[in-house]
Amino acid sequence: SLEEAIRRAEEALRKGQTFEYAGIRVTTQEALEKFRKWAEKQK
Rank of each mutant, 00 (worst) to 15 (best):
E10A: 07
K34E: 15
E20Y: 09
E40R: 06
A5C: 04
I6L: 13
L13W: 05
E3L: 10
I24K: 04
E33D: 12
E33H: 07
L13F: 09
A12K: 04
G16V: 02
K43E: 12
G23R: 01
V26W: 05
G16K: 04
R14E: 12
T18Y: 15
I24R: 05
K41Y: 12
A22S: 09
Y21P: 01
L2K: 02
A12S: 09
G16W: 04
L2T: 04
R7H: 11
E10H: 05
T28L: 04
R8D: 13
Q42P: 05
A31Y: 04
E20A: 05
A9Q: 01
F19D: 00
Q42V: 13
A39M: 08
I24D: 01
T28F: 03
Q29N: 09
R25Y: 13
V26S: 00
R25W: 13
E3I: 10
V26Q: 01
K43H: 11
K41E: 15
A9S: 02
G16Q: 05
L13H: 03
E4C: 05
E20I: 11
R36I: 15
W38C: 03
G23F: 04
E11C: 04
R25T: 14
V26A: 02
E30W: 07
E40S: 07
R8T: 09
Q42R: 07
K37E: 15
A31S: 15
Y21H: 06
L32N: 00
V26G: 02
T28P: 03
A31I: 06
G16T: 02
R14Q: 13
L32W: 04
T27A: 14
R25M: 14
A22H: 13
K41I: 13
A12Q: 06
Q42W: 08
F19W: 06
G23E: 04
Q17R: 06
S1Y: 14
K37Q: 14
T27G: 11
F19H: 02
E30H: 09
Y21N: 02
Q29H: 12
V26L: 09
T18V: 15
E10G: 05
E10Q: 07
Q17S: 09
L32M: 07
I24Y: 11
E3S: 10
E30P: 04
A5P: 02
K43N: 13
S1R: 14
T18A: 14
E40G: 06
G16L: 03
F19T: 01
A31K: 06
Q17Y: 11
R7V: 10
V26F: 07
K15Y: 10
I24M: 11
Y21D: 02
E30N: 08
L13P: 00
A12L: 07
T27C: 03
A12T: 06
Q29A: 12
E33T: 07
T18E: 14
K15N: 15
S1L: 12
G23Y: 03
R25K: 14
K34H: 12
K37H: 11
K15P: 01
S1P: 12
R8N: 13
A22V: 06
A39T: 06
Q29R: 11
E40I: 07
K43L: 15
T18W: 12
A39L: 11
R7D: 07
A31E: 15
R36V: 14
G23H: 05
I24N: 04
L2R: 03
W38K: 01
A22P: 02
Q42T: 09
W38Q: 03
L13R: 02
W38N: 01
S1T: 13
A22W: 07
R25H: 13
K34A: 15
F35R: 00
S1V: 13
T28W: 04
Q29K: 10
E30V: 08
